[in-house]
Amino acid sequence: MNFILRRLGFYALAAWVSITLNFFLPRMMPGDPGDAVMARMQGRVQPETIDAMRKAYGLSDDPLWQQYFDYLGNLMRGEFGIAISAFPTPVTDIIRTSFFWTLLLGLTATIVAFLIGNLLGIIGAWRRGGLVDSVMPPLLIFVGSFPYFWLALLALFFMGFEWGWFPLRHAYSSNISPSWSLEFVGSVAYHLVLPAASLVVVAIGGWVLGMRNTMISTLSEDYVMMAEAKGLPQRRVMFNYAARNALLPNLTAFGMQLGFILGGALLTEVVFSYPGLGYQLLGAVRNLDYPLMQGIFLIITFSVLGANLVMDLLYVRLDPRVRGA
């Protein structure tokens, strides 16, 4: 319990630091969105209009510390400001919808890659030198060394465009309205296959190799030998004794990976025009939409922190040795 409290304290501190950085960094840049609009319009707007826009965007000439506390207050109330590129939609609305799609794509790809990769790694190490062990790692490393967006492009071109097996863009068919109907969920899954698969194929090799190698060193541990001497069924030795211990380092990696889900598949979202955070971020950067960028960055930092926290707690559950530390 004490351990959990201490971890929570650490994460609260980290969150505060990232919020503060997120506030100050853009303000250290010269100019502001108002100037940007002014520049784009090449002076063809009245200063009053700019002032009105500034007000609408939440920019003010108050001292920095005052702005900082206003910002903190706004965050507490869940107000991220208004998206300039989609005026006057609040940033939170844009993030809310795109967050879901990024999470769906990232989680699906990461979990599938983690499961398949580790399972292949376990089997490869268990039957060392067997078929799985000799074919899989080199093949997957080969595939994994391609840039993920290039594989995504290939997949889109052949399986989407040439052969027409999968849809070309978006997260669901435009002729179905979102609901929990079987039809809609099916359409979402169908649209998810290609983008997720292109990510899985790239990520899987690392898991296989990592798991295989830790598993091989775990297999020569005395406790695995003892488990075998106990006459336990193979499956139990393989999973409860060997894999259970070999999984621990990979689980940390998985947690780190979870944090990067929100920002990690940006180009995949662009290739498949998948309406996630990455796609939105691209738009925000193109339009100098600071509030939206800030909002997305903040969400990404928070998800990294959140994922790490979850992993920390899970680790406590899985590795009793951490509990006392």
Binding site: E221, D222, Y223, M225, M226, A227, E228, A229, K230, G231, L232, P233, N240, Y241, R244, N245, L248, L318, D319, P320, R321
Partner: peptide
Amino acid sequence: NEFRWRDVSMVFQSAMNSLNPV
């Protein structure tokens, strides 16, 4: 697997390493 442990069991050298830590 039936024979192991029922007829012959074994105490390994290093107790720290012969117990499953998890």
